[in-house]
């Protein structure tokens, strides 16, 4: 107990630690479960289509379902691979 008191001086009660820990863990868990079941599959299929034209890796596509006001927003982020030649040219002109 004394060591505990040393690290968490006075006002931090165990109840407030409990509340904080719960808020953090539940924020994570709610994100995971609020999405409809099709999101992982959608991500996989999109990746397959995009990969036909651009060299993308698994972790370069992110599909999330969010909210903006009253509307639901399906957000698809595709990270493009860096093109070495283009970036070099940019560097040259700069």
């Amino acid at each position: 107990m004394s060591l505990f008191d040393f690290f968490f001086p006075k006002k931090t009660s165990s109840a407030s630690i409990a509340k904080e820990r719960l808020q953090i863990v539940l924020a994570h868990e709610r994100v995971g479960r609020s999405g409809p079941d099709f999101l992982p599959l959608l991500q996989k299929e999109l990746l397959a289509v995009v990969a036909k034209y651009i060299a993308v890796k698994d972790d370069m596509i992110h599909v999330t379902l969010g909210k903006a006001g009253t509307a639901s927003v399906l957000e698809i982020n595709i990270e493009m691979p860096a093109e070495p030649r283009a970036s070099k040219m940019k560097a040259a002109t700069a």
Binding site: S13, A15, L22
Partner: peptide
């Protein structure tokens, strides 16, 4: 709850 050992009604309602 008063002693800070237990989550309060408001804590649980908030969460």
């Amino acid at each position: 709850v008063r002693r800070g050992e237990m989550l309060s009604v408001d804590d649980v309602k908030d969460i």
